[in-house]
């Protein structure tokens, strides 16, 4: 068992969810309720990581993160570091490939909050922020929790993009999925089996949680 790889994966998963959830709430509300030009394009962009091969996504991210690229230079100027083959770069990539897993459940959740319930809140004198806090989020929280669990589990399990963007640097970019691949290559079946079983367990529990939440939501609705 590669404990440092497991720790790195957990750190990456939590950081991804922490950055992505607030962003998802803001974006998903707009997608759920506002009709604007380019809405379909934004939705398509968000969904893209679902259908793109991880290697394609990883390739473009790698090109974008290269030290010669605009993004790479800007990052270097700001922090002195590089995006490619670093934890920060891995986090940025993770945020991109988790977009659909974070945004879509939250969007569905906001869509299920009736417009008139929000209007009723405004007529009760609640500001938009207070309405979000007191009415929208309490009604949408199963979607938020679902998004958190999906993002978390999906980050733990992502392999292709991580390998392309992060490589295999112990303690920096070597996640548990990479470590499993590494152990199999080294014919270390025991370690690969233990880590696989752990990922299997986490994934199973995550999906079970999502289904339970969904049932709770439908029961109440």
């Amino acid at each position: 068992m590669d404990w440092s790889a497991l720790w790195l994966s957990l750190k990456l998963a939590l950081a991804t969810a922490a950055v992505l959830l607030p962003f998802s709430v803001l974006l998903a509300r707009e997608l759920a309720w506002r009709r604007f030009a380019g809405r379909a394009a934004v939705e398509a962009f968000v969904a893209l990581p679902l259908v793109l091969p991880p290697t394609v996504l990883g390739y473009y991210l790698l090109v974008a993160f290269a030290p010669q690229s605009a993004l790479g230079q800007a990052f270097a100027a700001l922090t002195g570091g590089t995006l490619a083959f670093s934890f920060t770069g891995l986090l940025a990539a993770s945020i991109v490939f988790n977009l659909p897993f974070a945004v879509q459940p939250v969007q569905r959740a906001f869509e299920s909050v009736p417009e008139q319930v929000r209007e009723a809140a405004w007529l009760c004198g609640m500001s938009r922020w207070r309405t979000l806090w007191k009415v929208e989020l309490p009604l949408a929280w199963p979607g938020l929790l679902g998004a958190f669990v999906l993002t978390f589990a999906h980050t733990l399990g992502e392999f292709g993009v991580v390998l392309m963007v992060g490589g295999n640097i112990p303690g920096e970019t070597k996640t548990i999925a990479i470590a499993i691949y590494d152990r199999v290559q080294a014919l270390d079946d025991h370690a690969a089996g233990a880590m696989s079983a752990l990922l299997l367990g986490i994934s199973f529990v995550s999906i079970a949680v999502i289904y339970t939440l969904d049932r709770a939501r439908r029961h109440r609705g």
Partner: peptide
């Protein structure tokens, strides 16, 4: 609407489903 002091009873009431009757009014 927040500043108008207009009371509106919606056709399907639009109550806050996660709040008790009392909390709906307190809102």
């Amino acid at each position: 609407p927040q500043a108008r002091h207009a009371g509106l009873v919606f056709q399907h009431y639009a109550l806050f489903p996660h709040m008790s009757a009392s909390r709906n009014v307190e809102a």
